[in-house]
Design a binder for these strands. Sequence first.
DNA 1: GATGAATGAGGCTTCATTCAT
DNA 2: CATGAATGAAGCCTCATTCAT
Lengths: 233, 233, 233, 233
Amino acid sequence: MPASSDTPSPTAAGKRARRKDARPSELLDAALELFVEKGFAATKVEAVAARAGVSKGTLFLYFPSKADLFRAVVQENLAARFADWNTEYEAMDGGSDSAADMLRHALQSWWTRVGSTKLTGLTKLVISEAQNFPELAACYHAEVVQPSQQLLRRVIQRGIDRGEFRPLDAEYAVYSVTSTILYLVMQKHAIGLVGPASGQLMPERYIASQLDIILHGLLGPAQGPPSRIPALS
Amino acid sequence: MPASSDTPSPTAAGKRARRKDARPSELLDAALELFVEKGFAATKVEAVAARAGVSKGTLFLYFPSKADLFRAVVQENLAARFADWNTEYEAMDGGSDSAADMLRHALQSWWTRVGSTKLTGLTKLVISEAQNFPELAACYHAEVVQPSQQLLRRVIQRGIDRGEFRPLDAEYAVYSVTSTILYLVMQKHAIGLVGPASGQLMPERYIASQLDIILHGLLGPAQGPPSRIPALS
Amino acid sequence: MPASSDTPSPTAAGKRARRKDARPSELLDAALELFVEKGFAATKVEAVAARAGVSKGTLFLYFPSKADLFRAVVQENLAARFADWNTEYEAMDGGSDSAADMLRHALQSWWTRVGSTKLTGLTKLVISEAQNFPELAACYHAEVVQPSQQLLRRVIQRGIDRGEFRPLDAEYAVYSVTSTILYLVMQKHAIGLVGPASGQLMPERYIASQLDIILHGLLGPAQGPPSRIPALS
Amino acid sequence: MPASSDTPSPTAAGKRARRKDARPSELLDAALELFVEKGFAATKVEAVAARAGVSKGTLFLYFPSKADLFRAVVQENLAARFADWNTEYEAMDGGSDSAADMLRHALQSWWTRVGSTKLTGLTKLVISEAQNFPELAACYHAEVVQPSQQLLRRVIQRGIDRGEFRPLDAEYAVYSVTSTILYLVMQKHAIGLVGPASGQLMPERYIASQLDIILHGLLGPAQGPPSRIPALS
DNA sequence: GATGAATGAGGCTTCATTCAT
DNA sequence: CATGAATGAAGCCTCATTCAT
C-alpha cells in the first residue's frame, strides 16, 4: 500500500494545522474564564494568551482586537447554546406534561445543561458589560432571553387556561423563574465569592426550594398538594 | 478700609467653607452615578471631578486614589443605609403583624426606600466589582445582606412556627425575596438597558406579581386566600 | 497704586499659562525638525516630546495622535507662509518692473523668506509623505503650489505679451522656476546630505546660475543683453 | 522506474529551479514598486512577498532582513543602470555633435531609458530614504549622480570652449538638467499624485519646454536660432 | 526549499497621580 | 485650598523575524 509518496504525512502536516484550528476556541475558552473572573477592562490580553498557552501576538492572529475577542466570546457561546435552546423548546412545548411539570423540568434542565457549567459565566459577562457592549446585550436578549421568556410565558398561560394555575399575571409570572436563575448565576460568579466556603448556597437545594415556592404560588388554591413538588433528584 | 485687604470677604469665605464641606459628598454622588453607569475601570476620575464641578486635582485632596474613592462610595452609602435598615429591622421585628404582612411590608418598604432610588446602584456596583474589590463585597455582605437575610429568615420561621406558612426550607426560602430584589436591581441597571422603552419592566407590577406568587407559595394550603395579597398601592 | 490684591501676580500665574501657550508651537517646531530629518514613520513621538523638552504624555495633551501632530505641523507652517505669499503676490503683480525683474525677484525673495529657512523642510515633508497623507499634499498643492504657479505663469505671459520674452509655452515655462526651487529643497534636505562638506551646493551661486540660464532662455533673441542678469545679492 | 520515486519529476524540478532562480528578482521588483508607492517604513514585508507570489518566509530565505531587501533593491537596479550609463557615456563623449545636440540627446535618452520606466522609482526611493540609508544615498551619488554630472559638465564646458555656449558657470549649469530630471521624477511619484488627472504634467511637453529654455539660456547671444530646438517627439 | 503559525520587542496612546502655581 | 499642566507606568496592537512542519 504505497499510498504515501511525496505528500507530507497527514500527521506531520496536520499537527500545526490542527493547532491552528484549535487556537480560536482555546483562546475563547481562556478569554471566557478571565473575562468572567475579572471583567473586560481588568483582563489583559496577555493574560488571555498566556492562559491559552500562546503569546500575545498569536491572539491577534485570530482576533483583531480585544473588543472583538470579547464579542467572539459572547457570540460563540451564544451559538453553542442556541441549538440546545431550540431542542429544549420543542421537547417542552410538544409534551403532554402538566404545566407544573414543564416548569420544573425547564428549571432542572437549565441547571443540568447550563447552570452547572461554565456557560453561566456568559450570562454574568453579558450583564456586567451590558453598558459597554450594548450590541451584545441586545443580541443576547434577542437570542436567549426573549425566546426563553416567551416559552415560559406560554407554559404558564397554558397552565392558567387549563385551570392548573390560579388566574394571575401570566406576563410577569415568568420573572419568578427568571429571577431564580439570575440569582443563581450571580451567586456563582459574584455574590458567592464572598464569605467562607461554609454558608455557600447549595444549588440543588436552592432550586428545589424555589421550585417548591413558585409552584405552590402558581397552583390554584383548590388544588391538592401536588405529589412531587419537593423532588429535584 | 472697605474690603480692601487680601482676605476674601467673610461671606465669600463662608460660602467656600460650606462648599468645601459639601465637596466630598458631591464627589461621592458623582462617583456613584458614574461607577454604576460605566463600571469602575471605564470611569475616569476626571469625569467624576467634572460631574462634581471640581477639578481633577481637587478629587485627590479628598480621596487618595481612585480605588479609595470607590471604597468611599460604597462605605458611605452603606453607612447611609445602615441606619435605615436598623430602624426597619426593629420596626418589623417588634410588630404584631402576620408574617405575610411583614414580608409584604419588607419588600414594599425596600422599594420605597431603596429600590426606587439611586441607591440600587450601590448593589449593582458591589456585585459588578465583587471580584476586584472583595473586601467591599465582604463588607457589603456582612453589613447589608446578612442582616437582611437573617431578619427575613426569622420572619419566615415565625410564619412557619405559627402555622401561617407551610413547613418548608426556611433557610432557603429567603432567596425568594432576595432573588426578587436582585432581579429588579439588575433590570434597572443592566438588563433593562437593552430593548425599546416599550417592554420595559414595570417595577410596581413586578413586585406585586412576585409577592403574590411568593406569598401564595409560602402560605399553608389550608389557609384561606389572604385578603390583601394583590395590593401594592 | 495698590492695584495688586488677592489675584495671583500675573507673572506667577502666567508662567505656567505662558508655557501652556508656548507648548504647541514648541512641539510643532520639534516635530517639523524630526519629521524632516527622519520621516514620519521613523520619528518616535517620544523623540519629538524630548526635543521639545516635555514628556511623551504632554504631547498628547495638545495633539490627539501622531498623525494629527503631523497634520498640524503642515497646516501650521502652511498658514505661516500664506500671509507671506499673499503679500508677495500683490507686491509683484502690481509693480511696474520688467517680467525678468519680477521673476528674478520672485526667486530671490523665495530664497530669503523660505529657501534659507527651516520652512523648506515643510516642502520636503509634504512631498516625502504625499502618498501617506494625500489630503495634506492636496492642501499644500491648492494653497501653496497652485497660487505660486499661477502668479509666475501670469508674469511669464505678460513678458511674452510685452515682447520681453520669446513666444514660448507659457504654461510649462513655469516649471523652470518650480524645478529650480524643488531641486534646492531636496538638495538641502536629502541629496545634499551625502558626500563631503566640500562639493556642497552653494545656494546663492545655484540660484544665480539658474536665473541666468532661465532668463537668457526666456528673453527674446533680439533683446540686448539685459543689464543685471548676473546679479544676485 | 518511471517517475515513481519521491523526487519530483525532472520537468517539475526544472520548473522549480527556474522559478527559484527568478525568485530574487521577482521579489526585488515587487519591493521596488511597493517601496516607491508607500515608502520603506510603510511597506510590509508580507505585502512584498504577496506581490511576488511567495510567502513571507520565503522572502527571508533570500534577504536576511527588510533593510537588506531595501539595499538589494537599490543596488540591483543601480547595477542595471550602470551598464547603460557607461554605454551612453561613451557614445556621447565620442560623438561629433554640437554640445546642444548632446544635451538634448542626453535628456531625451534619459527619458526613453529611465524617465519613462519604473526605474524612476529608484531615484525617488533613494532620495526619500536618504536620511535613513545614507550608505545607499552615497552609493547612488557616487555611482549614478556624480558620473552623469561629470559627463554633462564636460559637455557644457566643451560647448563654452567651442563658443557654442555663452561663457557661464559651467560647474553649476548642469543643475539645469539635473533639476529638470528631478522635478519630473518627483512629479511622477509624489507631487503628481495630488490633483485631478486633468492638469497632470505631460512629460514630453515638459521636457521639450525645459530643453527649449535651457538651450536658449546656454547659447551665445550671437547665435542664430538653432534649427531643431523645439523638437522632441 | 517553501510555508505560515508563532513570537516578542517596540511604538502609540491612555489615564491615575503629582505638584508648581 | 484649588487648579490643571505635566508625568510615566502600563496596556493594546503591529510587524519583522524565526522555525517546526
